[in-house]
Amino acid sequence: MRLAKKRPTDAPLLQVRDLSVVFPAQRGNPPLAAVKGVSFDIAPGQTLGLVGQSGSGKTTTGRAILQLQKVHQGSVELLGEDLTKMSSSNLRRMRRHMQFVLQNPYSSLHPRMTIAQTLTEPLRVHRSVPPSQMRERVAELLELVNMDPAVMHRYPNAFSGGQRQRIVIARALAVNPDFVVCDEPVSALDVRTQAQIVTLLRSLQDKLGLSYLFIAHDLAIVREVAHKVAVMFGGRIVEMGNASQVYDTPAHPYTQMLLNAVPIPDPIIQRKRLRLTPPEFRFSADEDHDGPCSHGENHVRTGTAPWHQIADGHGISCRYWPPTS
């Protein structure tokens, strides 16, 4: 059940252009630009991994795409419709196409609603299932995430973190969305549970043709799920490409630094890695410095975006490139 509007079949499901988010000034602190001109596409059935350290703006980007955070500038087109310019009632209608899986499964379920109540809420909101079939649909959803439908009348406190995250995923899938933002969906879980949830998310993608924006600080997890990867730093995407391009041939020094810092569960390799002294990077964060970038191009003068295509589908920002001197 797509929107009536005709779309070319090869069009991306989600198209984010020049997205910026500014947190207003608060208690003497100046306004903070959390996301600065982020652009990317997500194709149907594909996963974009968004990685970066805390404060890089990755979570804010996810919330801004879902319009849970006020967008300062730019556009977010889902299924060809710009969410940033939508009325709130249209937006609520659009929410059945886009869903959210939050980080903490302990806090993202209403503690005083049973699993059945939690799972029927989106169904009621979007009137996607007649009341007589609600129960059936809830059972179906629980089976979809490999849980016993008999648990539907229990409260969240009866479940472990991994089980709760399954329920959260079931809620997100209740209305048959096309696109799900997963914000650190496994970082609160134990390693074996992480692996199970990642496997579940991937099998659901194959089964239902879902697109994911997979936000995580854990680069190793992202490698397991993402087709494309975008690396964020200071509110900007500094490198983006296919997973193998970014992980195997990282071009931006920031990406290289991140990848080198990830511990590898192999004593011999990891010991060597720890012995290496990490290089110190000095990013030229200067907004509109008038001079050639690291690629010798003056973006201010030529009026082009500070972005360099280094291979097919693989690009880096030169804004944070260390000065060549």
């Binding site: 390693v191 074996r192 992480q194 692996a195 990642v198 991937r202 854990d218 680069l219 190793a220 997890i221 490698r223 397991e224 799920v225 993402a226 087709h227 296919n242 997973a243 193998s244 992980y247 990848l259 990830v262 590898i264 569960p265 192999d266 390799i269």
Partner: peptide, 17 residues
């Protein structure tokens, strides 16, 4: 073995495309 198997690794192949 189960624990080690579940650890995601950066240095081995990722998602099969």
């Amino acid at each position: 073995r189960a624990l080690l198997h579940a650890v995601p690794r950066l240095d081995t192949a990722g998602r099969v495309l």
